[in-house]
């Protein structure tokens, strides 16, 4: 049956259609190869002994299930980077979601004179490149004594994820029908109470999507982490690769193990919640 439909479809299609589809299918296969090969290389190399690459060539299957690389990396401080990353992302995420929900409530529900100009300022902040603020934030961090401490990352992370988060949540809250609040207000609910009792719970789906986007962003952040922290024990995962690279320069399989381990949490998250994650990642696409 399926084949019959396919046959009919093919007969309907013109030669140009078929040609185009052929080209696109070839491109699709080529891209599958190009996108996948580096990952295959990364995973396979992680299970190889240091000299296997030299002796057997890069495309060879690993000689056996060799796990010493993983042991070395996991006992070599990797867990510390991982915990640092988790702590920074969780604290920052909590702050981002709360602060942006407060602001979004104001922009979507309250009417007052300077609302639109203030909102425009927030939206304009989305275009600010982080490198303009890198030196002043570095100086500030030094001055207040937070330098080389993971908590130094929280401030910049919150600041740079806030504008987009406010923008998205404002849009989300605008779509929440306002009649529930109106009846609550008639019953004597204050603005602050309506926010906590009604708007905040109804915004949770939007905040979840936003949370995914922000987490991925912060999980992978490099520039601030590089500038604001120095010792290995206060660095996050993206810097782990940096540190291990200094340690194992010539040991390619070890570096590949580190890369595999850093990529693993994201890939696992992707497998568990594919659609949610894709949706979350696309939140950033409104930036234009």
């Amino acid at each position: 049956m399926k084949q019959l439909i396919l046959m009919r479809k093919i007969r309907q299609a013109s030669w140009i259609d078929l040609g185009l589809f052929l080209i696109i299918t070839l491109l699709a296969l080529a891209w599958l190869f190009v996108a996948g090969l580096p990952f295959v290389h990364m995973f396979l190399s992680a299970f190889k002994k240091q000299f296997e690459i030299y002796n057997n060539g890069v495309f060879a299957w690993p000689d056996g299930l060799y796990l010493d690389n993983f042991k070395a990396v996991l006992t070599g401080g990797f867990i510390r980077y991982l915990t640092n990353s988790i702590i920074v992302v969780l604290i920052s995420l909590f702050l981002i979601l709360f602060i942006s929900a407060f602001a979004a409530y104001v922009f979507s529900r309250l009417k007052f004179r300077f609302r639109n100009p203030l909102y425009s300022i927030v939206v304009a902040c989305m275009a600010i490149p982080i490198h303009v603020t890198l030196i002043p934030i570095y100086m500030m961090t030094q001055k207040i004594g937070l330098y080389d401490n993971i908590f130094a990352l929280v401030g910049p992370y919150v600041a740079f994820n806030l504008p987009l988060s406010i923008f998205i949540l404002t849009g989300f809250m605008m779509d929440i029908p306002s009649d529930i609040e109106e009846s609550a207000e008639i019953d004597g609910c204050s603005k602050i109470m309506t926010f906590f009792r009604i708007i905040l719970p109804l915004s949770l789906p939007g905040m979840a999507t936003l949370g995914i986007y922000n987490s991925v962003n912060m999980w992978n952040e490099f520039s601030f982490a590089l500038v604001l922290t120095q010792k290995a024990s206060s660095r996050t995962l993206p810097l782990a690769i940096w540190e291990f690279q200094g340690q194992y320069t010539a040991n390619i399989t070890m570096i590949m193990t580190v890369l595999t381990l850093t990529a693993l949490p994201m890939i696992l998250a992707f497998i568990v919640g594919q659609d949610k994650l894709v949706k979350g990642m696309m939140v950033g696409a409104v930036k234009g």
Binding site: F98, I99, S100, F102, A103, Y105, V106, L110, F112, R115, L118, I121, V122, C125, I128, V132, T133, I135, P136, I137, M139, M140, G155, P156, V158, A159, F160, L162, P163, I166, S190, K191, I192, F195
Partner: peptide, 23 residues
């Protein structure tokens, strides 16, 4: 309410963005 709810956001943006760009 507006002032109360906007203070955290603008405090963070003020320190890390506006002041930083000026600096």
């Amino acid at each position: 309410t507006a002032a109360l709810f906007l203070v955290p956001a603008f405090l963070v943006l003020g320190i890390f963005m506006f002041y930083s760009i000026y600096e």
